[in-house]
């Protein structure tokens, strides 16, 4: 196995640590610059997750709260591929998601938003990518909700998503939004991503061709994790 490093993270493509319009960033980020290090053996390895650790309904948030009844809301499937920066699929990647219910309320002991809980919705899911890096969840479209920031700011409908690649240095947690939502442009958190093309990577696209007829709409969200640099002195002319 090669110990080739992964591409450095482009910290200007990612959101800046402190973005004053998202107030929680101001006191929670270091003042000193990050110290750049070479990637160690620990960074180049990562935890391996298997199907045995998952429940068969983990990828189905309409049913997986275990009450036997279905969650209320706009029925959707979100699917896509996990690739690395070299456009190669990442198989066996653990994806975890969490989200508010159709009314914008989270099932969390610290969420006090007045919208009602749905007794049949937990808002937690997970899935492993297949050999082609593909994944799919069935869920309901989350509602927008207000949060205390500049007075009452509103979050666009979004789903939180956490991804483990093959190496711990590929670790990523982000959120995705839904095509056409006018709240994206108004959201202080979405707009911590300064580059319009970068923010567009976080917008799931309506995939009408792959709808479930008379059942659900489908959205497509592809994910790109860090990729490995090429090495030219191994017996691998096609790259690694």
């Amino acid at each position: 196995m090669s110990n080739t490093e992964y591409y450095r993270r482009d910290r200007n493509w990612h959101p800046a640590p402190i973005v004053p319009n998202y107030k929680s960033t101001v006191l929670r980020n270091p003042q000193r610059p990050l110290l750049s290090l070479p990637q160690s053996a620990v960074d180049l390895a990562g935890p391996v997750f298997g199907q045995a650790q998952l429940d068969p309904l983990d990828h189905d948030l309409i049913l997986n709260y275990g009450t036997g009844a279905e969650a209320v809301g706009e029925r959707i499937v979100v699917h896509g591929r996990v690739l690395d920066q070299n456009a190669r699929p990442v198989p066996g990647a653990l994806i975890e998601i969490w989200q508010a219910n159709a009314g914008g309320r989270y099932r969390h002991v610290r969420d006090g938003y007045l919208a009602a809980l749905d007794p049949n919705f937990g808002g937690c899911g997970r899935v492993l990518t297949d050999a082609d890096g593909k994944y799919a969840f069935r869920t309901i479209k989350p509602g927008p909700y207000p949060f205390r920031n500049n007075g009452s700011d509103w979050r666009p409908a979004h789903i939180h998503i956490s991804i483990f690649g093959a190496a711990f240095t590929q670790r990523l947690i982000t959120q995705f939004y839904f095509e056409g939502d006018p709240l994206i442009a108004k959201c202080p958190i979405a707009n911590t991503v300064a580059d319009a093309a970068a923010l567009d990577m976080l917008v799931a696209k309506l995939d009408l061709e792959n709808q479930g007829p008379f059942d659900h709409l489908t959205y497509r969200f592809d994910i790109v994790l860090r990729g490995r640099r090429s090495t030219f002195f191994e017996n691998r002319p096609e790259g690694n």
Binding site: D10, T174, Q175, I189, V224
Partner: peptide, 8 residues
């Protein structure tokens, strides 16, 4: 390719 950007 560009990496998917992070969010909180």
């Amino acid at each position: 390719l560009n990496e998917t950007p992070s969010q909180t």
